[in-house]
Amino acid sequence: MSTNDRSEADFDGAITMDRLREILDAYGASAEKWPAEERAPMLALLNSSARARELRDSACDVDRLLDTLRAPAPSEALAARVNAMHPAAPRLRADNRRSWRSPVPRAMALAVSVLIGVFIGFGVGNYDPDPVAERQTVQTLPAAETAAPRTEAAVQGPPAPPSIAAPRSGSSGFGTAPLLAGSEAPPAEEAEAAEPVPLI
């Protein structure tokens, strides 16, 4: 039977020596630690029985041993830290934290990050990382073509590195092709003539 439902009604004012021993074994000799509803009968039995008092004295030993261990007091620094926690407007702080838990600001932050990433991506795609390669391309062209106006080579832009397919008209990617699309694209023959000769 669980004794969580114990109440004073369970006791008729008397207590057995066995129960007294159980209580002393569990709670020790200090009356204020005993179950409240059994305290009075415990004290009555202790008053009337030498054997009960022997049992209580025995329980006292363990209490005394436990009492030798005394916890330290809180340091002044801890008390100052905890006292300094300001309870004012806890709702405001909680709301601030909660607002970042909602998906809307998180989604906005993600969208801004993606946009920044896309702009940076375009910038890197148009960046000429190796001007030497451009010079080499121009040098390998036939003499007639090298005599062509510099502007053609400039319009064509640098060749892509060997590991990256050179963007062609209609192809996708972040190379030079998108810049030549539409009305700004040169006639087909011009574009073919201006196509860079691959490096060997």
Partner: peptide, 17 residues
């Protein structure tokens, strides 16, 4: 339960003793 608590306490105090 209180019974289980008493059991824990009794055993602990016996071991300490």
């Amino acid at each position: 339960s209180v019974d289980a608590l008493e059991s824990l306490l009794s055993r602990a105090r016996r071991l300490l003793r």
